[in-house]
Design a protein around this nucleic acid. Structure first.
Lengths: 231, 231
DNA sequence: TAGATTGTTAATCGATTAACAATC
DNA sequence: TAGATTGTTAATCGATTAACAATC
């Protein structure tokens, strides 16, 4: 057992950490399908990365594979479950009961990563008191009480751009440590507050860009064929 | 004008491309606030990166700054607007008119990046015919027609995990080239189809991880103080 | 056993940071 | 002008890929 492990720290390269979540999703699926073993090659194909990458990432885990057999799915899955903290539960709150806030509140996947939605807030009197999934929409005046009661450190901001900064200030003033920001507003908060900007369009821009690249490559190929064999 | 630019290709390092979206958001904000000039230092502080990083990223753009003055916000903004293709419009469709699909359909930011939502689909008879924002929910039998009519290349999958693969197969069979996957299902589609897995929990895991790291560092500091000055 | 697959070390690649000359 | 800030080149850092010995 290394010094780091003894201290309860498992540090991964950032890029590896990102992929561990994907492995987790895929292994859950394979497990549900009744599969017992999996090769790095198979994982790589599904996730569109290389088998070497998979093995390298897994080398940071305890679980080892067997040559010609691969990895025991259940074993990997258990380690990743543990890692993503099904143990240590964290309460989060959602500000804004619009479509996005409601979608988050109804999201079933949180429990797999040790997250519980403690409450959802809105300042619209028509929404307050209505149910979103299993939660009743609360007025913002209850914010302080809920944060203290559930020791909330993380808040999801699902309000319009125009009120995002104001909401952020309010949350910070009540001691929230991390903001999961779904608004398009770039928030200005003290440096010690962690901000994760969840820009919904980022992925879409990536797709658009990749499509454009593909078109370009195809066009170039056609062009070079034409040039190399002119009529 | 470089060879690459003449061909209409502007290639950026992947990491730079990701940040350009953030610059775009921030500059829009500053512009709306009536600011005209901005320093790399100011941008860096808001986005929590270094000024060197900002200048390096901007070195891939046409827009140049002036020492002691900084960058003309409007000029940068125009170039980024152009880059993200307010020009070339792309039609996308959304499959699944639940909370998440509805949130996407109502999202106002798409037009800034040259995206238009052409239609939203569901297979629930109770939803078909109802309005989501400005769109009427269509039955899946209209899929083929809409894809052809609007030359749809990108589809957002907002259905439950259990039907995601089936929907993906259907979309691919109708010629969709890129899948924006909001389900937790890892999709198995031909290699030439682009898949962007939009795992909503990824960012949250990052936050949780960073919080844990911070706690750990604080605990260590306290510990070392205690050790270095025992009672 | 022979061949396939893992785990790990070394080499390469790409992105960030540092340094500094150019310039407003 | 002097000092601040940009733009770019070089150095460092981190992540991916290649190579290959270990082993089932």
């Amino acid at each position: 057992m290394s010094l780091e492990e003894r201290k309860g720290i498992l540090r991964f390269p950032k890029a590896t950490f990102e992929r561990l979540k994907l492995y987790h999703a895929l292994l859950s699926q394979l497990h549900a399908e009744g599969k017992s073993y999996v090769l790095s090659e198979e994982i790589a194909e599904m996730l569109r990365i290389t088998p070497e990458q998979v093995r390298k990432d897994f080398s940071f885990l305890e679980t080892k594979g067997k040559p010609k057999v691969g990895y025991v799915i259940k074993e990997l899955l258990d380690e990743l479950d543990e890692l993503f903290g099904t143990g240590v539960d964290e309460n989060i709150i959602i500000i804004g009961a619009g479509h996005l806030g409601s979608a988050l509140a109804n999201y079933k996947g949180f429990k797999n990563i040790g997250i519980r939605v403690a409450a959802i807030f809105d300042n619209d009197p028509k929404k307050i008191g209505t149910m979103v999934g299993e939660l009743m929409v609360l007025p913002l005046k209850d914010l302080s009480r809920v944060i203290r009661r559930f020791k909330v450190k993380i808040a999801a901001i699902c309000v319009p751009e125009s009120s995002a900064q104001q909401v952020a200030d309010l949350l910070v003033s009540h001691g929230v440590k991390a903001l999961w920001n779904f608004s398009t507003r770039i928030l200005d908060v003290p440096a010690e507050v962690i901000v994760q900007n969840e820009d919904i369009t980022r992925g879409l821009l990536g797709l658009k860009h990749m499509l454009a690249e593909k078109e370009r490559i195809k066009a170039e190929e056609l062009n070079s064929v034409k040039e190399s064999s002119p009529k």
